[in-house]
């Protein structure tokens, strides 16, 4: 677990539950009402406030189906769901939810500005607030230069950014992201993570579904791993990933004689050959370092972004 998640873990959090799912089952049926696929088979999980929960699983494990049930797009065959204390069908609960689907189905004839304006109006945001947030979001996702081009002309990555922006327009209390970093370049991926972390610091909750395990590991507090519609493992990242019977120690490089003496002592104490190698940073960190030190000109063009929107990190 990264330092970011550690910092949050050590803080105190409210215990209000954002999502309570109990005994959730979803069976898809054919025209004759015969069961076709049991996509979700009795899962129980909760999401508290101020935490990021990662929903993991191979293709067809029931992640997307679970998310759609949380949003009221699908109806559970059995079990119960409460989202922000209400039924997922309840319109008032949706006021504080943001959702980014796996495939951004945006209206191709709208520009990003118009798209955000449309969804902002659905949230009942006042015009002044709407406009301010739209500009901040466009800047954040690096689409200011393309704000007045129709979404139908965009690449997948650009559509994704618009999708992310619309999920954040209402400053949601609960954010549900399905493959949020798919199709995004590394700086944009970093920004998505930073946004998530900033929101969580303000007490918001996030449910994150992704195949990119490194991304999930670096930001999530808890993981729920699904397979064949059932939860196979659930718990905090720290608890799940820590190998409590092993230790790794990081030290500076020593002269050969001291190194030899150290290895000898360790061998005597543990009775096996210790593993020694240089620690490595993750590829994302390396990539970002390279980009930052690349030259004196800042990043320009598609994808250049200015950091998190002020209303999202609480500075507005």
């Amino acid at each position: 677990m990264t330092s970011e998640a550690v910092d949050r873990d050590e803080g105190s959090h409210e215990t209000a539950l954002m999502i309570e799912a109990e005994g959730l089952v979803k069976v898809f049926r054919d025209f004759w009402r015969r069961p076709k696929v049991r996509a979700v088979d009795g899962i129980d999980f909760n999401v508290g406030s101020g935490e990021i929960v990662g929903l993991l699983g191979p293709n067809g494990s029931g992640k997307s189906t679970t998310i759609k049930m949380l949003l009221g797009l699908l109806f559970p065959s059995a079990g119960s769901i409460r989202v922000l204390g209400e039924s997922p069908q309840d319109v008032t609960a949706k006021q504080r939810i943001g959702y980014l689907p796996e495939i951004s189905d945006l209206y191709s004839f709208l520009t990003p500005r118009e798209t955000l304006d449309f969804y902002g109006r659905l949230f009942g945001l006042k015009r002044k607030i709407r406009r301010s947030r739209i500009e901040q979001l466009l800047e954040m996702v690096g689409l200011t230069h393309a704000a007045d081009r129709q979404v139908g002309e965009f690449s997948m990555g650009m559509k994704r950014r618009v999708g992310l922006a619309q999920a954040l327009v209402n400053d949601p209390l609960l954010l549900i992201l399905d493959e949020p970093t798919a199709g995004l370049d590394p700086p944009a991926c970093r920004q998505v993570k930073d946004t998530m972390l900033a929101m969580v610091r303000r007490g918001k909750s996030i449910v994150l579904s992704s195949h990119l395990l490194a991304d999930v590991e670096s930001v999530c507090d808890r993981l729920v791993i699904l397979h064949n519609g059932r939860i196979r493992a659930q718990g905090s990242v720290k608890d799940l990933l820590t190998q409590s019977d092993r230790l790794s120690v990081t030290i500076p490089v020593l002269p050969p004689e001291k190194m030899k003496a150290l290895l000898h002592a360790l061998r005597d104490h543990i009775g096996e050959e210790p593993q020694i190698e240089h620690p490595s940073m993750d590829l994302e960190r390396f990539f970002l370092d390279v980009i930052e030190h690349a030259g004196d000109s800042p990043l320009t063009g598609a994808g250049h972004h200015e950091g998190i929107a002020r209303y999202l990190d609480g500075t507005e």
């Binding site: 949706k94 189905d105 659905l122 949230f123 009942g124």
Partner: peptide
């Protein structure tokens, strides 16, 4: 059919 209604249906709109 084109699933555009998903993003609308998850907003607080009846």
């Amino acid at each position: 059919e084109q699933e555009k209604i998903r993003l609308v249906a998850v907003k607080p709109v009846r």
